[in-house]
Design a protein around this nucleic acid. Structure first.
Lengths: 262, 262
DNA sequence: GAACTAAGTTCCACTATTTGGAAAAAGTTA
DNA sequence: TAACTTTTTCCAAATAGTGGAACTTAGTTC
């Protein structure tokens, strides 16, 4: 689904096109973009040229395809440093993953979705970058539910309205009603579980990261598979998970980490 | 130094502002940006509003500061997947780092600078994300020199013209003449060394990654410190490094990885 | 090799957006 | 309250963007 944005003039249109290219995920030809795009041929063409000029896109002359430019990778590094919880949380996540020897994820809510901003995987330190910047659904992931559970009603309904409720597995929650019930339980318990709701065999235990003022600024999870852990054995990590989340929240407060507007 | 770009209209200006925020590296106030910016107050203000609307920036109302938005992190993930060598090179880098048990970097030339797109660090799998998207100087890093050495004259002079020749250490090359001499040697040998030219104590051995057509598409390095290795002991990795580079080059050809325009 | 087709690029009169000086709000300090 | 700083709004003039149509290029067919 292409990102719809109310008129921010030309800049909005250009970024719209950039998003389209991003969402397609592989090099695209002009004509292919044109089919999807809401802009007329000449306009689209000019926008693409501008983005090329700005190195936001790169063009393969041989294949006549456009794709995202490396400039974005550079910018994102800066964005990650200054806008994500990751740099603040880094030492705490390291320590947690060392202690428990499990895969740890750090996420934030972004536009109703879960945005993973860091990950530790002690056993196999590979396939790592492939995770920062990755997005996932909020309604069927541990971190997503943990963060949602601690939003206030206004924020929550905004976030819920953005959920697709697609049934990934037999265990996926597929209605707002069910979700709200689950969130109430999570709020009581302070932690959430992903019971194979997003991917078969994958389970996790998660906690929200709250600012000193009690607002949700992120989520933390320990992920495993049913081949290795039961939900009960994951629950043993609860104290460490909560402790780490608390420490990160405090540190973020000290750093004056901004409260997001999800 | 702010990025100067010839007129791409409003879009160019907006991205210019975005760059400015990125380069400052920490949350900035309006007035602070205004001082640096070449745009008049009202214009700058509107550009910032547009970028905010588009989630490219986020705003902290309490502190009245702007910073890069998480949307960039998401986009960059897509960019990394579709425009960097990293996904293609992944298995080869894993294997190399496993075999040699040393820190391995994968880089590309971007606008005359070295852009690190992946890294493996077998001993301590931490501080990882902090590297993808990081940029470094080309004239005083192993990968930078290795890549430069295999550019054709046109590209090379363009890249050289962008070098700052800042003297980071006592060993930094600080003139075009010296650099060209060094590059000639590197071209002959097929590999380059960083002899503490960028950071004290840090040394590395690097090779360019060439496409099947012989064009530079990236660089690969094994990094260490003089506390652990001598240049001679690093040189022992030469065969493996060259072999891996060759494999990546081949694979990239198969994937039709585009030849960059540095 | 002329005629057809599809993809990409350019043109230009028309229009909508951007511009920026100036002035009003909002917030700070004295 | 006055003097100040910083941020935000306004609006007529100026500029930049628009998009239908025409053109170019490359590839295919008869």
């Amino acid at each position: 689904m292409a990102t719809e944005k109310r008129g921010d003039g030309t800049v909005g249109k250009a970024l719209d096109v950039l998003n389209e290219v991003a969402e397609i995920g592989s090099p695209v030809r002009f004509s292919s973009l044109l089919k999807t795009s809401k802009y007329p041929k000449a306009t689209l063409y000019r926008l693409l040229q501008t983005l090329l000029n700005q190195d936001m896109l790169s063009y393969n002359a041989e294949e006549q395809t456009y794709k995202l430019g490396l400039k974005l990778v550079r910018m994102a590094h800066a964005a990650w440093l200054q806008s994500s919880l990751a740099p603040i949380a880094l030492p705490f996540i390291d320590e947690l993953s060392d202690k428990v020897s499990e895969t740890v994820h750090l996420a934030q809510l972004d536009n109703g979705q879960v945005l993973y901003v860091d990950k530790r995987n002690p056993s196999s330190p590979i396939e790592m970058y492939s995770q920062a910047g990755k997005v996932g659904p909020a309604y069927c992931t541990g971190v997503g539910k943990a963060m949602m559970a601690f939003l206030d009603e206004d924020e929550l309904s905004r976030v819920i309205s953005k959920q697709a409720f697609f049934k990934y597995t037999d265990f996926t929650i597929t209605s707002e009603k069910e979700l709200r019930k689950e969130l109430a339980i999570i709020k009581k318990q302070g932690i959430s579980f992903d019971k194979q709701e997003h991917e078969a065999k994958i389970i996790c235990i998660s906690s929200p990261i709250l600012s000193v003022k009690g607002r949700v600024i992120g989520g933390l999870s320990i992920t495993s598979s049913i081949d290795i852990h039961s939900l009960e054995s994951l629950e043993e990590y609860k104290p460490q998970l909560l402790e780490t989340s608390k420490l990160i929240g405090k540190e973020a407060g000290a750093w004056n980490f901004p409260e997001q507007h999800n």
